[in-house]
């Protein structure tokens, strides 16, 4: 019998303590961000999908070596290059120029191996996170086109 009453006493006390905590929380400032009306700044290292980096002339830094493609665990990168003749110091030389760089973001795991394996510093992560869509095609990015659009 004694246990019964002490339970009631202890129980009510514990409930009051609990309620005083939730009551105090009630008056604390709100920490929720009202997305999409408010947004947060992404941290510097945030990994969005990858993006090509341009050099001073606005051309991609990429030399089409294909290291990123080989390193990618999920096979999301496909790139092609054409070789063009360019004149360097009066001599005609052949040079590989990137002609296509497609990213299939549906498969990307954002592991960062492509960025890490690029010896020419030609890739970076974007800060893009608003990518929701119901169509698969929206996640196939033509990175060369995106680069041109950014330059324009």
């Amino acid at each position: 019998m004694g246990g019964y009453f002490s339970d009631i006493f202890y129980g009510s006390k514990s409930l009051l303590i609990g309620m005083s905590i939730t009551f105090r929380e009630f008056f604390k400032p709100t920490v929720t961000v009202q997305y999409p009306y408010q947004t947060l700044k992404m941290s510097a290292r945030f990994r969005g999908h990858i993006e090509l980096i341009a050099d001073e002339d606005g051309k991609p830094k990429c030399v089409a070596c294909g290291m990123c493609q080989r390193a990618c665990p999920s096979g999301c990168i496909s790139l092609e290059s054409v070789s063009v003749d360019i004149e360097v110091d009066g001599k005609v030389k052949k040079k590989k120029v990137l002609s296509k760089y497609d990213l299939d973001f549906t498969k990307c795991s954002l592991c960062g191996q492509c960025v890490e394996n690029c010896n020419f510093g030609a890739l970076e992560f974007s800060k893009e996170y608003n990518l929701a869509s119901t169509r698969k095609e929206d996640f196939h990015f033509n990175l060369l086109k995106r680069l041109e659009e950014r330059n324009a």
């Binding site: 941290s43 510097a44 290292r45 945030f46 990994r47 954002l110 960062g112």
Partner: peptide, 15 residues
């Protein structure tokens, strides 16, 4: 998660 995001770049599936 904010701290880990700042160093790893991801919030859940870290690499």
């Amino acid at each position: 998660l904010d701290m880990l995001e700042a160093v790893t770049g991801a919030r859940l599936t870290y690499c």
